[in-house]
Design a protein around this nucleic acid. Structure first.
Lengths: 215, 215, 215, 215
DNA sequence: CATGAATGAGGATTCATTCAT
DNA sequence: CATGAATGAATCCTCATTCAT
């Protein structure tokens, strides 16, 4: 998906290849130093291309940021279904989704932080596209929750808030990495979190299933 | 607290007055447009002072950001004790703390978002001071939780994670304002959130107290 | 010789061409107005390039000064051997060297004055490189003197002081141009000076050779 | 002598005192760092007065430079007659004058260098006043030379050039301090210089007197 | 007289973007 | 298609000078 970002080059495979080359470099640099501090020259050097080349595939520095954020958000959205593949049991699916989301945030801490830092640097219209992407990811979580409710494993909880609670919990691993990293492993974080958050939500049956999952 | 930021002017009251004038303007502008996009000239204009004056009270643009973030974080830290004044009952205090923290985030949505966006724009040493301030605020929440546990109102929950859950919940109101605003009032948000989060945490007695508080 | 001054452009011929374009403009302006009073914008305008271009070939205003002083000193060093080419007789060579040095100072009065004025505006390390260049020039003079002594044309004079006397004599034509210009021609200056300075230095044979040279 | 530099304060003694306070600080700073790099604030701090006070006794930064250069040049002019006091014998007087001039340059190396560096920073009119001061000093030397000629101690040399030779010799001790300092003492410098320069100038009788002086 | 807070024009430097090769 | 030299608007920051106290 190019979101209509103009390219002077027409060949699709080239666009694909070059852009991902550029995006890769930009994610690293934006993540480490931030968007405004990173120069196009920096990106060109790290991507091992010329400055001019970047402007053949992008018409703006903001375009690069947009592509970067899209890529980050999409990679998150891709991670969850991948982790659910083959799992049938609803509570298991829910837990797998949470773990997957946390894992993805763990692998790309800087990218997650970047999304929080720099989304505002986009013009409104694009900001909304990014938000849309986040909503789509959230829906994957929400679906798991609803499945659990339908299956009688969760009480009829406030799905909207519970979804955001899960989302913030996952993001927190990245946003507050300076606190959590070193204090516990990702796995511990997930289980301690699930235990805390599921307590008031599980039905009697759900609680039994959860206990089984834990072991 | 000046955190040893150099000032050419010595008179404390003047420093106090001018700096808060500068900070006020900067919070607004940084919050709206971001740190890097805002120029010193913008700040000077909005604060209705000359560019030179700013550099009499600050030696750097980064100094302004630092002062701004300190002020934001401190204002949060101030908000909670203020809201607890006069309240004795532990669960009541806990709820009041949560409401206060959410309220303060509600009143300064942009400032909260700013803290997430721009803390990384500070040099490490100062970034740590900011984190320290956040930890201090978190401690206020944690204390309320522990009091509830001690009073037999909360089960013996995972205080560390529960604290962060509360913190992220409060921040989410600002960070995800684009979602929540318009969908519910702050009060609804707080109560729905408390209901969701406290469910598994309250003891039987705690539940009774909570039900009473709700009405 | 680039003395490791960083350039964003890699192509050597380009560096050569652009730098000498910049240096030429800078010599004129620094010479006329002084280093601190001259702005990069002035230099850019006079060199007929953009401001940005200058910063592609130089990383600092001080770099420009350094390049300028190096160029001035080197041009002096180049002038003397050029004037000695083809001359064999030691006293003749000595006189030619003095005349050449004076001539070069005459042609670039402002550059000579500039070297006196602004060498101190360089950081120590570079100041030393400049001094080294001066020493190298001085050695050319000293060599001529020693040849004359060896040839029995000069008494065994204090070479070190005599060298400096010659050097100062040459510089004086530029440093005190406001006095000498208009009072005498460069040629007169050189001959009157030589007559004065050689008097106590020439051996009997040297004196005869000198008299012959004069006519 | 105030050279009509405007002062808001009228009381002469105050002007005298304050100005010399300012000039003292300025000489040190200009000498060490240069005129343009030194700020009025620096001078005020070192002179232990307020910025405003400086502008009560001077209307310009250039005024300070002018006063500084005047003071330096005058102090040189004062040094020579002081050294000649009581000496009658012409050659002795000449040598004493040279030694005095060198000594004064030795004591204020930086001031001498300053005069060479920054005279050009004055506007033309004032530059001429400074030159005039230098000429007056030079005349003191020239007078000594002429006395020696009249007394039959010197040949009828080129007084003009010889004077400048002496002047440059004295200045060289400061201008090339980086070379001479450490290589010889001031006294050695003076005697080696005189020996070199006087050689062809002394008459037979002069030579005898000189030899006597040396011991 | 003395102070030093306030001003703002001016200068060095950066960097997104273009375009000729 | 790819390159990277060239451009110049825009930004941070300094500092001589003023003026109210």
């Amino acid at each position: 998906m190019n979101f209509k970002i103009k390219s002077r080059v027409e060949v699709p495979e080239l666009i694909e290849r070059r852009r991902s080359q550029i995006i890769k470099a930009a994610i690293e640099l934006f993540g480490k130093r931030g968007y405004h501090v990173t120069t196009i020259r920096d990106i060109a050097k790290r991507a091992d291309v010329s400055i001019g080349l970047i402007y053949q595939y992008v018409s703006d520095k903001e375009d690069v940021l947009f592509l970067v954020l899209i890529e980050v958000l999409e990679s998150y959205k891709r991670g969850i279904p991948a982790a659910l593949k083959g799992i049938e049991e609803p509570l298991d699916r829910f837990c797998a989704a949470v773990r997957a989301y946390c894992t993805v945030n763990d692998e790309k801490v800087e990218a997650t932080v970047l999304a929080y830092r720099e989304t505002k640097s986009l013009r409104k219209e694009r900001r909304n596209i990014i938000k849309q992407k986040e909503i789509e990811t959230n829906r994957l979580i929400a679906a798991c929750i609803q499945d659990c409710i339908r299956a009688g494993l969760f009480e009829k909880v406030d799905v909207e808030l519970f979804t955001y609670q899960i989302v913030m919990f996952s993001h927190a691993w990245a946003l507050k990495a300076w606190h959590f990293r070193g204090r516990m492993s990702l796995d511990q974080y997930v289980w301690r979190g699930l235990t805390l958050m599921l307590g008031p939500v599980l039905t009697a049956r759900g609680a039994r299933v959860f206990k089984a999952l834990k072991s």
